[in-house]
């Protein structure tokens, strides 16, 4: 029994109840998708935390570069006209 390959890592996303998004719960090791789902159920929904599970091989996730954070996200900060509070509405007008 010499060095062996480790089971691949999977990222787990759980929908906590119907009507909500799947949310990242954590990761786990599994040899295949079927066992990844089963392991996710046993590891992340032991206390009824979920009604639906997604599993994704961690290696298949593409993430943005932390170094790009400024150029990716800062420009949005100045676009205040995207928010409703940017606009002035007379006080006597309601339901808007």
């Amino acid at each position: 029994m010499t060095t062996r390959k480790e089971w691949p890592l999977w990222e787990v996303f759980i929908r906590s109840r119907d009507g909500l998004h799947h949310k990242h719960a954590g990761s786990l090791h599994a040899p295949d998708a079927e066992l990844a789902i089963q392991n996710a159920r046993d590891l992340y929904t032991r206390r009824s935390e979920g009604v639906s599970i997604w599993v994704v091989p961690s290696a298949r996730i593409t993430a943005s570069e932390p170094a790009d954070k400024d150029s990716l996200f800062d420009p949005a900060a100045s676009k205040v006209y995207r928010h409703p509070t940017f606009y002035t509405i007379p006080e006597e007008v309601t339901n808007i």
């Binding site: 090791h29 599994a30 066992l35 392991n39 046993d42």
Partner: peptide, 11 residues
């Protein structure tokens, strides 16, 4: 044999 399986079997 592996943590995940330990948890599964205990379930």
């Amino acid at each position: 044999p592996i943590m995940e399986e330990d948890i599964a079997l205990t379930n």
